[in-house]
Computed example of a mutant assay.
Amino acid sequence: MMSKPDILCIGSVLWDVIGRSASAMRQGSDVPGRITRLPGGVAMNIAMTLARFGLTPAILTTVGQDSAGDELLSACAARGIVTDLVYRSADLPTDQYMAIEGANGLIAAIADAHSLEAAGAKILAPLSDGRVACENAPFQGRVALDGNLTLTLLSEIAQSPLFSCADLRVAPASPGKAERLFPFVKQSRGTLYVNLEEAGLLCNQTFKTSRAAAENLLALGAARVLVTDGGADASEGRPDGLLTQTPPQVLVARVTGAGDTFMAAHIASEAQGLDPAAALDRALKAAATYVSGETPS
């Protein structure tokens, strides 16, 4: 029998292949380091952090009927993530992500989420077929949604009655996919979690501070936003005001997954009753701990 989830995490669940070096790198660098293969993807990273904070997340995604997919779902279950709702395709392989990180941050990354994009709305079936909810009784819980879905599907979700009663939290998969979130700005739906670059892409301008970015996103129509800027200030913007805080300063050991950790920690903090200032503070501390390498992947 499926455990009742506290939140649905919709989007990419794949294998992360990450090469990390303690050296600063540039294009063409060839340096020693470590290569790891870990469960990843925006939805997966969020789900893993939610589980560490005591919540029970369920993932809505696609995973291939291949050995990589079998291993991935086993890894999810071992981390306390409900996998009963996953769409498994016989024709699509399990997705993967590859990144190179140096002492100076992320050098390059390639996200192969073609199977997720090809599966499309099939991953959302549990929201309408009665397994989680149905058209006459929409899901009323928390939903974490990532921007690895196609723009067409994200646009449909932004307007769909299936999500009309949900506490919807949305994040881009990367700056290159930030503009896929614009339907949620236009429809004033959900809470958006973006970094400073992503906020600039959504607003078609450059910002110097997270506070300015949050103000502009609200002016465009966003219902609520949280804007981060690495080790600089982060801001929450909502119709009743703005909140800005500074994260702890730490030595950076990794960057991939930091934004997902921040988002998940913030969602968990609010689910556990923390007020806005305390929730933002806890999320910033969780992200700082993660990038310092102290939190397990």
Results as ranks from 00 to 15, higher is better:
294 E>S: 14
74 S>N: 11
89 S>P: 04
241 G>F: 09
277 A>D: 04
98 M>Y: 11
253 A>Q: 08
225 V>E: 05
57 P>N: 07
143 V>C: 06
136 N>H: 14
115 S>T: 01
141 G>W: 12
127 L>G: 05
76 C>D: 00
4 K>H: 06
85 L>E: 01
296 P>T: 03
112 D>N: 08
179 E>R: 15
175 P>F: 12
105 G>F: 09
258 A>Q: 03
263 M>E: 13
169 R>I: 01
116 L>S: 01
78 A>W: 03
69 G>D: 08
286 A>F: 02
75 A>Q: 02
288 A>R: 00
81 I>L: 05
27 Q>R: 08
237 G>N: 08
122 K>L: 15
97 Y>H: 09
276 P>K: 00
85 L>N: 02
144 A>K: 05
151 L>N: 06
102 G>I: 03
183 P>K: 11
114 H>P: 00
86 V>I: 15
286 A>S: 11
230 G>Y: 13
148 N>I: 03
8 L>E: 00
117 E>C: 07
197 E>R: 15
150 T>K: 03
268 A>P: 08
1 M>T: 04
159 Q>E: 13
176 G>F: 13
290 Y>N: 03
108 A>V: 14
58 A>Q: 06
197 E>D: 13
177 K>F: 09
36 T>D: 05
95 D>Q: 01
268 A>H: 04
160 S>M: 08
164 S>M: 03
87 Y>G: 01
120 G>P: 10
126 P>I: 05
234 A>S: 15
173 A>I: 10
84 D>E: 11
162 L>R: 08
188 S>K: 10
42 V>C: 12
95 D>L: 05
159 Q>H: 13
212 A>R: 10
170 V>D: 03
181 L>Y: 08
260 D>W: 10
252 V>W: 00
227 V>F: 13
174 S>N: 05
194 V>I: 15
14 L>R: 01
66 D>T: 06
118 A>P: 03
148 N>F: 08
137 A>N: 14
93 P>V: 09
295 T>N: 03
207 F>H: 07
250 V>E: 10
114 H>R: 10
38 L>V: 13
19 G>F: 14
28 G>V: 12
31 V>H: 09
128 S>F: 07
210 S>N: 09
176 G>P: 00
249 Q>F: 07
40 G>D: 12
177 K>S: 08
59 I>P: 10
57 P>R: 02
116 L>C: 02
10 I>R: 02
36 T>C: 13
113 A>Y: 06
127 L>T: 04
221 G>A: 11
148 N>L: 05
292 S>G: 07
66 D>E: 09
76 C>Y: 04
134 C>R: 15
85 L>K: 02
247 P>I: 06
268 A>G: 09
19 G>S: 10
284 L>D: 06
46 I>T: 11
189 R>N: 05
48 M>Q: 15
261 T>E: 14
72 L>N: 02
250 V>H: 01
67 S>V: 14
4 K>S: 11
186 K>T: 10
12 S>Q: 10
71 E>D: 15
160 S>H: 10
270 E>V: 13
62 T>K: 00
94 T>P: 03
32 P>S: 11
214 A>E: 04
